[in-house]
């Protein structure tokens, strides 16, 4: 209780310094948030593209429909498979006509092979799993050829991995900057109260007692900085939407809470390091 009062008193005692630290925390988290938003939207876009990943197994002419149906039922039972669709020669022609409308009169007769179109479940659309399923489908001797846009899938995943790695690296860098900034502002607060701290130690206050208000102060700054950053990120997104006509997604409640908690943790860590260093030195 005394710790919370002391922590709040610190805000009252130096409102300018407190506002300054909250703003710096907010800006570093804002940068973090902007990047997070980009990553989130890339992920969403990739997910939409990924949903179109499809394996198409072309069936040899003259294969009895019963055999195809039996194979289709078997494939549908693979754990990776979402659904299997049998596309007959007629259906293939109709689809080609529809997709390539201007050439529709070129298509005539049953020259397109029938196929099994296999859709995979989410989480099983990575190149390795796709290839595994393709190999099993190839095992049917009536299957002539299997197409699944191998290169395209590999590219997609490479892009996603690069985006993920860049997100983590930049995120860590921004987090480190934020922790250092919080540490520095708490350090200023510690130095401003160094006389008080030395008296506290002389009269027998424990390190934990001395540390607690600073940790609370750091966490509060982190939370406030996190909330401010959330508002700034939201405003930035609205501006982008308005002028660039992006359809961007914003953090859901869980991610937003996580961001603020992350801010609090950074505040806690920054102040713990700062106070710890001071207490070890005196």
């Amino acid at each position: 209780m005394v710790s919370i009062q002391t922590a709040l008193a610190a805000f009252k005692r130096s409102p300018l310094l407190s506002a300054l630290s909250i703003t710096t925390i907010a800006f570093s988290l804002f940068a973090f948030g902007l990047f997070g938003l980009v990553a989130l939207n890339i992920r969403d876009a990739l997910q939409r593209v990924e949903e179109r990943v499809e394996i198409r197994a072309f069936v040899a002419d003259g294969t009895p429909i019963e055999q195809i149906t039996a194979a289709s039922d078997e494939i549908a039972k693979y754990p990776e498979v979402l659904k299997v669709e049998i596309v007959t020669q007629d259906q293939a022609l109709a689809r080609a006509r529809k997709e390539l409308g201007e050439f529709s009169d070129v298509f005539d007769g049953q020259f397109l092979p029938s196929s099994l179109d296999v859709k995979l479940k989410a989480g099983f659309r990575d190149p390795k799993t796709v290839r595994k399923v393709v190999d099993r489908v190839k095992g049917y001797d009536f299957v002539d050829d299997v197409r699944y846009g191998e290169e395209w899938i590999a590219q997609l995943y490479r892009l996603r991995n690069i985006a993920g790695a860049a997100g983590i690296a930049l995120g860590l860098a921004f987090a480190a900057v934020a922790i250092i900034i919080i540490g520095a502002t708490i350090r200023m607060a510690v130095l401003a109260r160094s006389r008080e701290i030395s008296i506290m130690r002389l009269v027998g206050a424990t390190d934990g007692f001395i540390r607690r208000p600073f940790l609370i102060e750091g966490s509060i700054k982190g939370v406030l900085g996190g909330l401010l950053a959330l508002v700034l990120t939201y405003l930035a997104m609205r501006v982008l939407d308005q002028y660039l006509h992006f359809q961007t997604a914003f953090f859901d409640r869980r991610l937003a809470t996580l961001g603020v908690v992350f801010g609090a943790l950074m505040g806690l860590l920054g102040s713990a390091v700062s106070v710890g260093r001071h207490l070890r030195r005196v």
Binding site: R195, E196, S198, I199, R201, L202, V203, G204, A205, T206, D207
Partner: peptide, 20 residues
């Protein structure tokens, strides 16, 4: 961590008073 316990049994005063 035992030092605070010791200091609570001591009274310390300085030349420069050390008041807040």
């Amino acid at each position: 961590r035992e030092i605070p316990e010791l200091r609570r049994k001591l009274g310390i005063i300085f030349q420069d008073f050390q008041l807040l």
